[in-house]
């Protein structure tokens, strides 16, 4: 008779594992092989494995780690993370890079944007916009004074310190200095103030808003284009302080006020092409005497 344990190559293992069928087990237990293996199994289970000192081994491993370079993989991973971060940052900087146009004191500049809109910058002004994909979101940031001739299109807007001017094909002038002044010369614009509760003003041709001391005033005007475009600054019943501020934007000068009352009202104009003429036409009628300091840039005022 051929025994199971000879033909079935997992039989003996299943016997030890206790997974033989009752019938298989009973017939196997009658054999001599069973009697021998029972003893071999019992004796084998009396054997013991080696004694291992885990704590000592852990100490040895820590020593081995410290003699080798620490965590080289982690460092390499950090290199990769850093490199990826640099790429992402520089890419976003590249894509977010802005183009800025700035005029200094007395300078004027005309900027033509990608969509054909033209912005004339008055002195001491700055215009910036995204360098790439600007047409996807036609937004420009602006400070100073500028005359905007915007090609008819959707979504052009100008961010100023006082709020946002939203445009739909139009011509307007922004003056964002100590005081804010927005004049619409053609078409229609929407001004959204950036005060905490934004007010919205729609301006059409001949309408203007002024912001003085946070107060927004609506008004009308008649001129066809801003005076500064013709190289003149005009004032109608404006405080002297405004006139002086305007002078410092056009000419590289500062004023030493002393005891001068800057609130006196001025009506008149000055030209942008001659400092001496400008000083004379503004200060002399007001009864203010002036004197250039030795370096020529400081104008000392007195009654």
């Amino acid at each position: 008779m051929v025994e199971n344990y000879d033909t079935d190559d997992t039989f003996l293992a299943r016997w030890l594992g206790g997974t033989l069928s009752e019938e298989e087990r009973l017939s196997f237990e009658k054999t001599d092989v069973y009697k021998q293996l029972r003893i071999i199994n019992r004796e084998s289970q009396l054997l013991e494995g080696p004694i291992i000192d885990v704590d000592a081994a852990l100490k040895i491993v820590k020593q081995k780690i410290n003699t080798k370079k620490q965590k080289p993989k982690v460092i390499r991973l950090w290199y990769a993370v850093t490199a990826a971060a640099i790429i992402i940052v520089s890419l976003s900087m590249f894509l977010n890079a802005s183009k800025t146009y700035t005029t200094g004191i007395g300078e004027k500049m005309s900027v033509t944007l990608e969509d054909g809109s033209v912005i004339d910058l008055n002195a001491n002004s700055s215009l910036s916009h995204k360098r790439f994909f600007w047409t996807a979101n036609k937004e420009v940031n602006f400070t100073g004074e500028g005359y905007f001739t915007i090609t008819k299109s959707k979504g052009f807007s100008v961010n100023t310190s006082k709020g946002k001017v939203e445009v739909l094909g139009t011509v307007f002038n922004i003056k964002d200095r100590t005081h804010f002044e927005l004049k619409c010369y053609e078409g229609k614009i929407n001004f959204v103030s950036n005060k905490t509760s934004p007010d919205s003003y729609i301006l059409t041709k001949g309408m203007q808003i002024k912001i003085e001391d946070k107060e927004i005033k609506e008004d009308t005007f008649v001129e066809q284009r801003p005076d500064w475009k013709t190289g003149v600054s005009k004032f109608v019943e404006q405080p002297l302080s405004k006139v002086l501020e305007e002078l410092t934007h056009i000419y590289p000068i500062t004023f030493q006020m002393n005891t001068i009352d800057a609130n006196r009202i001025f009506t008149g104009s000055f030209k942008h092409n001659n400092l001496n003429d400008a000083l004379q036409t503004t200060l002399t009628p007001m009864g203010v005497t002036y004197q250039k300091a030795s370096n020529g840039n400081v104008i000392i005022l007195s009654e």
Partner: peptide
């Protein structure tokens, strides 16, 4: 496979010690 190896080990031990 483990059961096969185990069975073979047992057969060999029996051959040696039986």
């Amino acid at each position: 496979a483990i059961e096969r190896r185990m069975s073979k080990a047992l057969r060999e031990l029996r051959d040696a010690l039986g």
